[in-house]
Each structure stands twice: as C-alpha cells, then as structure tokens.
C-alpha cells in the first residue's frame, strides 16, 4: 500500500483496523514512505514489534483500491484472517494493470491535450508532435527504470531525449515551437502531483512523509529541468 503511493494516515488506519478486527487489544502503527513499524500487544503475555522497509515507490492506484477492498471485507467478517493473508499476497504479486502500450498512449494524449489547455492557444502544429514526444519520453523513462538502480537517472535521460527530439522537429518543421512542445511533453514526468501530495501530507501532520515526498519531487524536477537544459544549451534553440 505504501508502495502504491497512498496517503500515510490511510495506511496507518487500515493496518490498525485489520489488527483490531483480528482481536488484538493494543496496536501501534508508525508509517513512513521508506518503511513502517507495527507493534502489537494482546494485553497478556508479550508484545510483538515488526519492521518492514519499503524500497520501491510509485503510484499504483489499483493496488491501493484492492487492499482497501480486502480490509473492508475482513471488517465485515466475509473472509477470515488466513484468507485475507492469502489474498493480500496474491494482490501484491499480480496487480492487474493496463498493458504497457495503453499507458504509453495515455501519456501521449495527456501531453498533447495538456499543452493546449496550459497555453490557451489552439496550436495544431505542435499538437501531434507534443503527443508523440510525450509518449516516447514516457516509454524511455519506464524502460530505463527497469535497467538502472540510480534514482533520477531515468528522468534525466528521458528529459534529454525529449529535448533532443523537440529541437530536431523544430529544425524540420519551422512552424513549430520548441517551448510549447516541451511544456506538453514534460507533463508526463513532471512531479507536480507529488508536490501537492507532499503538501497534503504536511497538512495532515505527517511531517516525515511530507518532507521526504517534497524532497523527491524537487529532485525529480531538477533532473527534468537539467536534462532539457543540457540539450537546449548544446543545440541552441
């Protein structure tokens, strides 16, 4: 659930509920974006504390929804503890997801339409170009993320690729505008959302998570800006 980019208080709340429904008297949960602690106390003999660290984080809403659904079912006593554990493992391993090409098309349509919305000009020359570059950048980013462990490297190189293609296109098609294309195309990777999420975590009183997420967002933004900047500087647009 943490790996799916849920809010911190929702993670803590869900875990507490599951534990209480399982008949445990005292539960303490402390969740951070990088790991989580659970301490269970049955009031008589001993208490158990467990620590789980979370290495990979991305936004996966299907996962959040499934876990939520399962905890709801458990609270209604429709499934018991063993079934719950079984199903949770199953959800974790095979989260149903959209095929990758559909995600790429989604990224492309997102960047093309957002370019028009942001600029408030109906710039039909750049419209398909922004879509294509956005889709290719998203594909590049996902591909690189599979092959490298260094954070932000994928974003940096994907941004460089987008800048390169955008400048090449502007040489071929003089009517197009590099700035407009890149505004649209970069939206597929921009961490604007992570920033808003971070602020919301801060408002809810989850200080650690808010600061970690904000730091992540700022670093991603720097990587993207740097990548595009390098390309524009090199090729002069």
């Amino acid at each position: 659930m943490l790996a799916g980019g849920s809010e911190m208080y929702r993670v803590e709340d869900t875990m507490r509920r599951i534990a209480v429904n399982a008949g445990i008297k005292e539960v303490n949960v402390f969740a951070m974006p990088t790991g989580l602690f659970v301490s269970l106390d049955d009031g008589e003999t001993s208490s158990v504390t467990e620590l789980e660290s979370v290495k990979e984080r991305s936004i996966n809403l299907e996962l959040v929804d499934r876990v939520n659904e399962l905890s709801r079912e458990f609270a209604d006593k429709r499934i018991d503890l063993c079934q719950l554990e079984e199903k949770l493992t199953e959800v974790e391993e095979h989260t149903p997801s959209f095929p990758f090409w559909l995600q790429v098309i989604g990224a492309g349509s997102l960047s093309a339409t957002l370019m028009v919305l942001f600029l408030d000009v109906y710039d039909w020359v750049d419209f398909p170009v922004a879509g294509l570059i956005g889709a290719s950048g998203y594909w590049m980013d996902a591909w690189l993320k599979r092959h490298t462990k260094v954070r932000f490297l994928a974003e940096l190189i994907a941004a460089m690729e987008m800048g390169l293609v955008a400048i090449l296109v502007s040489w071929l098609v003089p009517a197009s505008n590099v700035n407009n294309i890149l505004i649209g195309a970069l939206m597929t990777l921009v961490p604007g959302l992570a920033m808003t999420n971070a602020l919301r975590d801060l408002f809810m009183g989850d200080w650690v998570s808010g600061i970690v997420r904000m730091c992540e967002a700022v670093m991603t933004a720097i990587a993207l800006g740097g990548g595009v900047g390098i390309m524009i500087r090199f090729l002069g647009a």
Partner: peptide, 12 residues
C-alpha cells in the same frame, strides 16, 4: 488528459 494520466498510474 485526466484519463491519460489515470492510465499511467494504473487506476482500477
């Protein structure tokens, strides 16, 4: 645009 983003974050 919203649906496009929803696809990339794997919405149910």
């Amino acid at each position: 645009a919203t649906v496009g983003f929803a696809l990339t974050v794997n919405i149910p």
